[in-house]
Simulated assay, not measured.
Amino acid sequence: MSVTATPEAHGALELDPQRLPADELKRLLAQMITVRHLDTSAIAWQRQGIIPGYAPMQGQEAAQVGSIAALDMSRDFVFPTYREMGAAYAAGVDMAEYMATHKATWNGGLHDPVKHRFTPIQTVIAGSALHAVGWAHGQRLDAIREGREQTDLPASLIYLGDGASSQGDIHEAMNFAGVFKTPTVFFVQNNGWAISVPTERQVAGGSVAARGAGYGLPSVAVDGNDVEAVVRAVRAAVAHARSGAGAVVVEAFTYRRGPHSTSDDPGRYRTLEDERRDAGPDPIERLVERLVADGELTEAGVEEFRAEAAAFEERTREAVAAQGPRPGAEMFEYVYQETTPVLQQQAAQWREESDHA
Score class of each variant (00 low, 15 high):
residue 2 S to V: 10
residue 3 V to G: 01
residue 4 T to L: 09
residue 7 P to C: 06
residue 8 E to Q: 14
residue 8 E to N: 14
residue 12 A to R: 12
residue 12 A to H: 12
residue 14 E to Y: 05
residue 15 L to W: 04
residue 16 D to F: 14
residue 19 R to G: 04
residue 19 R to E: 15
residue 21 P to N: 10
residue 31 Q to W: 12
residue 32 M to G: 12
residue 32 M to I: 07
residue 33 I to G: 05
residue 34 T to I: 00
residue 39 D to G: 10
residue 41 S to W: 13
residue 43 I to H: 03
residue 48 Q to V: 00
residue 50 I to D: 13
residue 56 P to M: 02
residue 64 Q to M: 07
residue 65 V to D: 01
residue 70 A to Q: 02
residue 70 A to H: 05
residue 73 M to S: 11
residue 81 T to L: 11
residue 81 T to V: 13
residue 84 E to R: 08
residue 89 Y to M: 01
residue 89 Y to D: 02
residue 89 Y to A: 00
residue 93 V to L: 01
residue 94 D to G: 00
residue 96 A to V: 01
residue 100 A to I: 03
residue 106 W to E: 14
residue 111 H to M: 03
residue 112 D to K: 02
residue 112 D to F: 12
residue 115 K to G: 04
residue 115 K to M: 10
residue 115 K to P: 02
residue 118 F to A: 07
residue 120 P to F: 10
residue 124 V to E: 05
residue 125 I to S: 08
residue 126 A to Y: 04
residue 126 A to D: 00
residue 127 G to P: 02
residue 127 G to C: 00
residue 128 S to P: 00
residue 129 A to N: 10
residue 133 V to N: 03
residue 133 V to S: 05
residue 134 G to V: 05
residue 139 Q to Y: 06
residue 143 A to W: 13
residue 143 A to N: 11
residue 148 R to A: 09
residue 148 R to Y: 08
residue 152 D to S: 04
residue 153 L to K: 02
residue 156 S to A: 15
residue 163 G to I: 12
residue 163 G to M: 09
residue 164 A to C: 12
residue 165 S to E: 09
residue 168 G to V: 13
residue 170 I to L: 14
residue 171 H to T: 13
residue 187 F to W: 09
residue 189 Q to M: 11
residue 192 G to R: 02
residue 195 I to G: 05
residue 198 P to M: 10
residue 200 E to I: 11
residue 203 V to M: 07
residue 206 G to N: 04
residue 208 V to K: 06
residue 208 V to N: 11
residue 212 G to I: 09
residue 213 A to L: 14
residue 214 G to V: 05
residue 214 G to I: 07
residue 216 G to A: 07
residue 222 V to M: 11
residue 225 N to Y: 03
residue 230 V to T: 07
residue 231 V to Y: 13
residue 233 A to Y: 00
residue 234 V to D: 04
residue 235 R to C: 06
residue 235 R to K: 11
residue 236 A to D: 06
residue 239 A to F: 00
residue 239 A to M: 01
residue 242 R to Y: 04
residue 242 R to G: 05
residue 244 G to E: 04
residue 247 A to Q: 08
residue 247 A to R: 03
residue 248 V to I: 11
residue 251 E to W: 12
residue 256 R to L: 12
residue 258 G to Q: 14
residue 266 P to W: 02
residue 268 R to D: 05
residue 273 E to C: 08
residue 274 D to E: 11
residue 274 D to R: 04
residue 276 R to F: 06
residue 279 A to H: 00
residue 282 D to L: 12
residue 283 P to L: 06
residue 287 L to H: 12
residue 291 L to Y: 03
residue 295 G to P: 03
residue 298 T to D: 10
residue 301 G to K: 04
residue 304 E to F: 07
residue 306 R to H: 11
residue 310 A to W: 03
residue 312 F to D: 14
residue 314 E to T: 15
residue 315 R to E: 15
residue 318 E to K: 15
residue 318 E to Y: 08
residue 318 E to L: 15
residue 319 A to D: 10
residue 319 A to R: 14
residue 320 V to S: 01
residue 324 G to I: 05
residue 327 P to A: 00
residue 335 V to S: 09
residue 336 Y to R: 09
residue 336 Y to L: 14
residue 337 Q to K: 14
residue 339 T to Q: 08
residue 343 L to R: 02
residue 352 E to Y: 09
residue 353 E to N: 12
